[in-house]
Write a protein that binds this DNA or RNA. Structure first.
Lengths: 207, 207
DNA sequence: TTAACCTTGTGAACTCTTTCACAATTATGA
DNA sequence: TCATAATTGTGAAAGAGTTCACAAGGTTAA
């Protein structure tokens, strides 16, 4: 496959959300011009993004909403369900367990881990919290495909090392730490403080 | 000021974190080569980023850790404190109130809002939760500079409109919704499901 | 059926970002 | 003090990503 940029993937996620909405509102077709307007992009950008994966439109008409939505779902891997484990059932972890958007997109949190003896064995929103000691064994047995890290920063690297050892190739990290993984592992880090820093930069520099 | 790209700002945040760490470990100087190695970038990239804001280094030696850290802090606006209000004290909102990194960087959550009568008036981690009805008045009175949105998606636009009306110019949004703001307002949206979609894309397409 | 209109898909042009490469400058050790 | 080594800062080159512009193909209405 031709190279797909980070920005293109992000925009696909956005198109997907717009299409879901348009579908609900009863729209049958949508043009690149309309999509672009909604997302504040150029029509050419929208067409270029989509053309990386095939020709989904009809000249003179545009794209069929339902069809394009499903195409993008398939490109992003949203037409299947993913088994996800979450490590660290603290403040952030608990919030993520309740985060509806995950399940809506097929990301099903199947396992929870913590290292706190008071939490281990407890039922949290229908899932028994397991001991992080058994991480590698449990991840393998449950055929988990993705892992979300929500442990304190100083424990994150250690936990990630275990996760990698269990053969997991995709990790979403919420710990504010600079984590290292082997090349073949996909790691994305969400750092909420860095998002605020971006805003304070914008404010100070009056962009 | 010359144009500073989104990517540059993100990298500055990362440099800042590395420098904080290096300082703690007792390093006095650091070269662009070393910084680049830690962040998996090229030395030229590091120097180019910094050169946008001035000449902070010493040829033959590198950068003084403490000095560079402070320069970047000043660029990002981390050398002052920011008054932040958080709207929506649900799962995500509560997690954010407890998020240590915010305070560490000078982002102080001063006000909490919700629309749930059972929560309004209650003390949450030392802050009395206020009625979102009084949003505009309270934001103005408390001289809030930034707002974090953690309300359900279907209420987000309405709340943001109020925030904008109160004169706030920087908003960090955690609601999975496509929010519109006037041009002069800086809005960043963190969509955690979109981060997972990025990972599933990577996994499917075996990048 | 036909003419007028609309919209896609895509090379080419353009713009933005990253990397290269090297002069200039400072540090270091004999 | 001087030669050697290290490292910055920055124009120029290379590489990526975005927008332009238009031929090709499809729609619509009379």
């Amino acid at each position: 496959m031709r190279k797909v940029s980070e920005s293109t993937v992000k925009r696909l996620s956005r198109y997907y959300r717009v299409l879901r909405l348009l579908e609900k509102e009863g729209y049958v077709t949508v043009s690149s011009k309309e999509l672009a307007k909604i997302e504040k992009l150029t029509p050419a950008q929208v067409r270029k993004d989509l053309s990386l994966f095939g020709s989904f439109g009809t000249r003179g008409l545009g794209y069929k909403v339902l069809e394009l939505k499903e195409k993008i779902a398939s490109i992003l891997g949203l037409d299947k369900t993913w088994k996800v484990a979450l490590i660290g059932v603290g403040n952030v972890g608990s919030a993520l367990v309740s985060y509806k958007e995950f399940a809506k997109q097929g990301f099903l949190i199947k396992l929870l881990f913590d290292n706190d003896q008071r939490k281990i064995g407890k039922n949290h929103k229908g899932i028994i919290i397991k001991d992080v000691k058994d991480l590698v064994k449990e991840l393998k047995e449950s055929k988990i495909e993705m892992v979300i890290i929500a442990v304190p920063a100083d424990q994150a690297q250690k936990v990630v090392d275990q996760v990698v050892k269990a053969g997991i190739r995709t990790i979403l990290n919420f710990a504010p730490a600079n984590i290292k993984v082997p090349d073949q592992v996909f790691l994305r880090t969400v750092n909420m403080a860095m998002e605020l820093e971006h805003l304070s930069f914008a404010l100070i520099n009056q962009i």
